[in-house]
């Protein structure tokens, strides 16, 4: 016992440094484990089904052992594109307002509101979609209501805070001298902001959009609640659609054998999408910081 205490006293710096190092490696371990377990379970399934049949197959019929996730890939891309169309213009302009137009009195209210928008759980968004957006789309545009359009509107709302906060930070990072120089040349406030500052903040704003894409493509619960989830390629934006994320949650509860593995493989495809988006994001961020 005394020997142990003595040992600790003499070597505590070294021991604790090793402990710090070990904890720092946990995030590496976590990523490694996630990759091993996902790819380890998903890749064999893809190989068994056949990569082309799996990725480009247009029929998903687990009952008949037909696993094609092309409709889900398209579904994810459609709703994400819709979310970008809805969310980016509003989010971007709101960020400009908050960074360059907003009187401090309004900013004090607007900023916490955007933070709250980011904090609302996705089930609450989904529920709001079910009780407000779906009936609204059904009344105004027709169809069943559970559709690409409803999902895009909801996801557009959900990615607003991401786009706003990243874009706002990017705009604020532009040196004030750009703005002042433009004003001194006789440009209006608006022209100075839009023509002199925004080009300099471009890559930061793009990074915000990419982050929004990542959120939209990965969103699960809210999408399941409003998208309709039919596993087929939709003909119009008023038809239901199933995303990659929804496919996993819908069927994982009762899936077995190859069906289960095919769902995990769906997760692998989603993961691959996300990794690509992350890579793009860090490239853009690095470029924004360099300029």
């Amino acid at each position: 016992m005394i020997a142990a205490v003595e040992y600790w006293r003499r070597h505590k710096e070294g021991i604790m440094q090793a402990v710090f190092l070990a904890t720092a490696c946990v995030s590496i371990l976590a990523v490694a484990l996630i990759c091993i377990f996902l790819f380890g379970n998903g890749i064999p399934a893809i190989a068994k089904i056949g990569p082309l049949k799996f990725l480009l197959g247009t029929k998903w019929k687990p009952g008949n052992n037909i696993y094609g996730i092309f409709p889900m890939i398209l579904g994810s891309i459609y709703v994400t594109a819709g979310a970008i169309l809805v969310g980016v213009p509003i989010g971007f302009l709101t960020a400009v307002f908050m960074a360059k137009f907003c009187p401090p009195g309004i900013y004090r209210f607007l900023k916490p509101m955007v933070d709250l928008l980011a904090g609302i759980p996705s089930v609450v968004y989904g529920f709001f979609g079910v009780v407000v957006i779906v009936p609204f789309v059904r009344e105004v545009f027709g169809g069943k209501g559970q559709s690409i359009l409803s999902t895009s509107l909801l996801l557009g709302l959900m990615i607003l805070p991401t786009i706003i906060s990243v874009s706002e930070a990017a705009i604020r990072a532009v040196p004030e001298s750009y703005y002042e120089g433009s004003l001194a040349l006789g440009a209006t406030h608006e022209r100075s902001v839009f023509a002199a500052m925004l080009p300099a903040a471009k890559s930061g704003i793009m990074a915000g959009v990419i982050l929004g894409v990542g959120r939209a493509i990965g969103e699960t619960m809210a999408v399941i609640m409003v998208a309709g989830n039919q596993p087929r390629i939709p003909d119009s934006i008023l038809e239901g659609v199933r995303t990659l994320t929804a496919n996993i949650v819908m069927e994982m509860g009762y899936a077995t054998d190859l069906h289960r593995e095919a769902l995990i493989a769906t997760g692998v495809v989603l993961f691959a999408f996300i990794l690509m988006i992350n890579l793009l994001f860090s490239i853009l961020k690095a470029r924004g910081e360099r300029s």
């Binding site: 720092a24 995030s27 990523v31 982050l211 990542g214 969103e219 949650v249 992350n278 860090s282």
Partner: peptide, 24 residues
């Protein structure tokens, strides 16, 4: 490497965490 992995973890959607948790 730690920075990159931490950033990767930030971007992973929760359903992928769910899948991993279920498998592991």
């Amino acid at each position: 490497v730690i920075r990159v992995t931490a950033e990767t973890l930030t971007g992973i959607p929760s359903i992928v965490y769910g899948l991993f948790g279920m498998l592991f």
